[in-house]
């Protein structure tokens, strides 16, 4: 089975990839570099992917690895395994911050979160990636991804609220 056409591939995935990269790298220039590097890796190796359903996962996995590879100060991003989610974090807040949200505000709030939550949450929201796929992309256990998304959503909500209050 022939792989997807490169141009079609770029058109189909560059936007969610860029937004994912932007949430990780926090800089448009770095995000653009990460996306380009990801597609160049595809140009070099992507034809090894025979299963077209794996393409999206491959691209996001590669971009995430590129990000990790470029990250210089790893101690800024401690790995935290969240085994238990506090019940209070799963409760919806009484306010409705979503009524005031815009893309820039949400992205800025997302970029504030620790990378532990940022990566799974970005994938969850940006390209409707299932938690099982996210676990594969980030190479972490499914249960960990579930708790990180869940807690990350609570943290994001608080961050958006704070931004809207200002």
């Amino acid at each position: 089975m022939a792989g997807p056409d490169f141009e079609d591939l770029v058109k189909a995935h560059y936007e969610p990839l860029f937004r994912f990269a932007l949430s990780l790298a926090r800089s448009e220039a770095d995000a653009g570099d990460l996306v380009q590097q990801t597609f160049y890796r595809w140009a070099a190796k992507g034809d090894q992917i025979r299963d077209s359903t794996k393409v999206k996962s491959w691209l996001f996995t590669t971009l995430h690895r590129e990000f990790l590879g470029h990250r210089r100060h790893e101690d800024k991003f401690p790995k935290v395994d969240i085994a238990v989610v506090d019940e209070s974090e799963l409760m919806a807040v009484s306010a409705s911050p979503e009524k005031l949200m815009d893309g820039a505000t949400v992205m800025a709030a997302l970029q504030q979160l620790d990378e532990t939550y940022r990566a799974p949450l970005s994938l969850f929201y940006l390209d409707d990636t299932s938690y099982r796929e996210i676990a594969e992309i980030l190479d972490v256990p499914i249960g960990t991804v579930m708790s990180r998304i869940s807690r990350g959503k609570a943290l994001l909500r608080v961050a958006v609220l704070k931004k809207n209050v200002r």
């Binding site: 936007e15 937004r19 949200m101 949400v106 959503k153």
Partner: peptide, 14 residues
């Protein structure tokens, strides 16, 4: 909430 976050993030300029 999820729908609004998705809608908002989809407007982030590329």
């Amino acid at each position: 909430w999820d729908a609004e976050v998705r809608r908002s993030l989809a407007t982030v300029a590329v």
